[in-house]
Amino acid sequence: MTPPATSEEPIGGWTALMDFDPDGMAENIADKFGFVERQVKGDLKRFKHFIEDRGAPTGQWRGQV
């Protein structure tokens, strides 16, 4: 099993951890070359910008988890 991919820059005061167990040769190669970690970091940054750039709440549920 691969160590968890982590975001080195805290996003909103938290750090994201994700377990990834490569399945097959293509995923193993992508993991070894760092493609998976870069994809996760990029996705988290795009999500952060998407949420922050909305400017207004969506009106959806605001309860606590």
Rank of each mutant, 00 (worst) to 15 (best):
E52H: 11
R62T: 14
V40T: 03
G63R: 00
E9V: 08
A30N: 11
V65F: 15
E8K: 07
A56T: 09
A16H: 12
K48A: 11
F33R: 15
V40N: 11
K41Y: 03
R38V: 02
Q64S: 13
A26S: 13
G13C: 04
I11G: 02
W14E: 04
F35H: 15
D19M: 06
G34I: 06
W61L: 14
M25G: 10
F33K: 06
W61H: 10
L44P: 04
K32P: 01
N28Y: 07
I51S: 01
N28F: 01
A30V: 11
I11N: 05
P22R: 08
W61D: 13
G13T: 10
I51H: 05
F35E: 08
G12A: 11
D43N: 01
V65A: 14
W61S: 15
E52D: 14
G63I: 02
A16L: 15
K32F: 01
F50T: 04
R38P: 03
P10D: 04
P57V: 03
P3A: 08
V65G: 14
G13Q: 09
S7M: 12
F20I: 15
P4G: 03
D23P: 14
K48F: 12
A30E: 12
S7G: 14
L44M: 01
A16T: 14
N28W: 02
H49N: 06
T2A: 03
W14Q: 14
G59S: 09
K45N: 01
G34S: 03
A26P: 09
I29R: 05
R38T: 00
T6G: 05
D23H: 04
D19Y: 12
T15A: 13
H49E: 04
D19H: 12
V36W: 04
T6C: 00
K32M: 01
M18K: 06
G12R: 09
D23A: 13
A30Q: 09
H49S: 13
V36I: 05
Q64A: 10
I11Q: 00
A16R: 15
V65L: 12
E9W: 01
F33H: 03
P10S: 13
P3F: 08
K41I: 07
P3V: 07
M25D: 09
T6R: 09
W14Y: 09
E8D: 12
E9L: 02
R38H: 03
Q60T: 06
